[in-house]
Design a protein around this nucleic acid. Structure first.
Lengths: 142, 142
DNA sequence: TTAATTTGGGAGTCTTTTGTCTTAAATAAA
DNA sequence: TTTATTTAAGACAAAAGACTCCCAAATTAA
């Protein structure tokens, strides 16, 4: 994994919500159970996601969460970075102090390419696109 | 960075030692200063590297560390995994519970390819090769 | 109106990682 | 032999991340 547990849980939760029928409300505890995420911990994360505008929340019986349009069209990277701060893959694999684009270590260039491709992978598709395609795969394999 | 501080410091130290004249002894404090690594922390890491056989250590005045043949021909990945345990990039970027080779999420395949290339990048060259090539670059740019 | 349910908010715990400090052991030079 | 120097070892402290718990606020249903 590239990011922390917190970021991972946030993405899994939001992808879970993206796969629900439109306007359906899902309780934090249901997501936690289904995705095997520590329940109270996830509740905290969803609380923050609500503040960021990635989910709408409703209290009381019948309440729960649903994904917002903002989250639907956001990329995985955007959401992760909002939740856990910048994803810090800037430094080269050797970690060498003087290693830079001017003074590249022997692994620098290939690493730079791979890093860019990873960034692209998680920033070029929207959450809803990823969720929809994944639903299709699950359906076919049934 | 893919690995932790501990792994990063270990690699930087061993690459530093690999760039020294043959048989030269370098003190922990010198590496720490030169590479801007917390001095006592690095000392601990070098202590462990000595146990693993990646460096030879000599006490007393004129003492210090030098790289062993084992470390010279080891890959960066081997050393990192010895020092900090397995580098855990197994799980997919989406972290989805059911995402697997049979049930791939939409990002799974590209991620698998990138992960393999990263593994290759840090496991196909020996520490000494990397160090030598880097020395050359630094020399040319002077 | 009351009780049950669900999120909001904050405090607090546990664990892991990172980093510091102190003393002992070994070695070399004075 | 004594002193200075350098690593070895282990205890300790600080910070960050992961996770728990409790109570308040809102909402719904009885």
């Amino acid at each position: 994994m590239i990011y922390t547990k917190t970021g991972e849980y946030a993405i899994r939760a939001v992808l879970y919500l993206a796969r629900q029928p439109k306007e359906a409300l899902v309780m934090s505890s249901e997501i936690a159970e289904s995705e095997e995420i520590p329940s109270h911990y996830l509740a905290k994360i969803l609380q923050r996601m609500a503040k960021y505008g990635y989910v709408d929340s409703f209290k009381g019986r019948g309440g729960g969460f649903k994904i917002t349009e903002l989250a639907q069209r956001s990329s995985i990277l955007e959401i992760v970075e909002r939740v856990e701060g910048p994803v810090i893959n800037l430094k080269c694999v050797t970690g060498l102090k003087e290693c830079s684009d001017e003074n590249p270590c022997p692994l620098h260039e290939e690493w730079a390419e791979l890093r860019n491709r990873i960034y692209n992978l998680i920033s070029s598709k929207s959450v809803q696109e990823v969720a929809d395609k994944y639903s299709d795969t699950l359906k076919k394999n049934r």
